[in-house]
Design a protein around this nucleic acid. Structure first.
Lengths: 252, 252
DNA sequence: GAGTGGTCTAGACCACATC
DNA sequence: ATGTGGTCTAGACCACTCT
């Protein structure tokens, strides 16, 4: 079964990515020139540039006008290359971990001002609040509090409480996750966190708040995840050219 | 004095960005088609696409084949748009805060295995370790432990201990920061952190570890910053198309 | 001065959304 | 059926790096 034909530039990017991680181009090595790559792959320079652009935002190579591109990545060691927007379950599987989830509560309700703001709904609109505990290989590592707009919440409410991945199930129902804005900080565990995660109240937890939207720009979730210290870390790459990250004051 | 001529696509991107934040296109509004923008700006469609690509990675607009682009950003409210790779001092100033710094210690030494790995140097190579306390409006908010390769460390060692921005000074000496890989997690404060930040040992601190490289791909610093809870949060955007972020196991 | 990446153009075809 | 964005081509000129 042939998959849906990938664009040319993705094939080229995949090839180069593989060549780099396979060690054909070590750290600090210089890539072939764009014109040369265009000849060897039999495509135009524009396509090569599109592929190299992807490697650039992945942080695998640098580029500066006038000089050959230089390989940045792993000096022999593995530097995990992260793709796309990933749900907890998908990320866990990609790490060779077994993701689990237990839905503690699903409550319909009316949007507070904060929820309404993040979901772009009128205050008081019907929403669903879901509280879940997420596990890796059976060990609780994260508490997830998510607010869904009604149309999405209804789907979630109907799911098996032990389902490992809500995201997969939602996509099967046509709810797609396209863009997300994340805010990461530290917050003390409250009583509920402490009980669910088996830590002490007041312990510092790694918090990720996230608003996700579908391809049309409609918010599909507003979530607040709290991770036990030492279980996960977040990684971000950025470049002078491709702005992808920032700090912000307070946790507001 | 005319500034160095900005590329066309940046002007277009700036124009559109301004139009969006000025409210000409509210949240959910549809942008003009690429062809129309190309005509109104008198440039080719490729240039328009380059500009729109920048807005896309900024998280200002979505895009899907077949449909007009949709504005994502703030529903009337300010959604701070972060640019580029920023030093602590520059970021603070952009937030209207007064950044400060106090260099506690500068020690020449030999690279440990970890330092050597991150700076891509042989173990035992000469490096400089710098310990600084960073303040906002005079209040300590962060402890910064940075390891520099010798050529950079020598410059830092010669700087005024009260200098607010090492990055500005380094750039003036031709040391440029181009790419960075950040890892964010939570770590308990040690005795030194507690004293310098005025918290208790064991308190959870927000930790950012960072390796920065120059435009040629050479590492220029390996840093570990520890922030007092509640002082800063990190924000990240990502999309299905432009991969920019990931989680990783452990803090290793 | 030769090589290389950054920018820009003018056109083409296709897949998908929308009406 | 039409409009729109995604992909691709083939050229061009310039700014910069390297030697």
């Amino acid at each position: 079964m042939a998959g849906k034909a990938a664009p040319l530039y993705r094939k080229v990017a995949g090839d180069l990515r593989a060549a780099i991680t396979a060690g054909e181009y070590g750290s600090g090595a210089r890539l072939p020139a764009e014109d040369e790559l265009a000849r060897t792959y039999g495509v135009s320079r524009g396509t090569i540039r599109q592929a190299l652009g992807a490697l650039r935002t992945d942080g695998l190579v640098t580029s500066r006008r006038g000089a050959r591109r230089v390989v940045l990545g792993g000096g022999g060691a593995r530097l995990q290359s992260f793709e796309e927007l990933r749900s907890f379950a998908r990320w866990a599987r990609s790490q060779g971990e077994e993701p689990g989830g237990r839905t503690v509560a699903v409550d319909p309700g009316q949007a507070t001002e904060e929820e309404a703001y993040h979901l772009r709904l009128p205050v008081g609109e019907r929403i669903f609040r879901v509280l879940r505990v997420r596990t890796l290989s059976g060990v609780p590592v994260m508490v997830e509090r998510t607010t869904y707009p009604e149309r999405v919440g209804e789907l979630v409410a109907a799911m098996d409480p032990g389902l490992a991945s809500h995201a997969d199930e939602l996509e099967a129902h046509g709810v797609l996750f396209s863009d997300a804005l994340h805010t990461i900080d530290v917050v003390p565990a409250d009583a509920a966190d402490a009980e669910l995660l088996g830590c002490r109240a007041g312990d510092g937890l790694l918090r990720e708040r996230r608003r996700s939207t579908d391809p049309a720009g409609l918010p599909v979730e507003w979530s607040q995840d709290r991770y036990l210290p030492g279980t996960v870390a977040f990684t971000v790459r950025n470049s002078s050219g491709s702005r992808a990250m920032g700090r912000s004051l307070n946790g507001s």
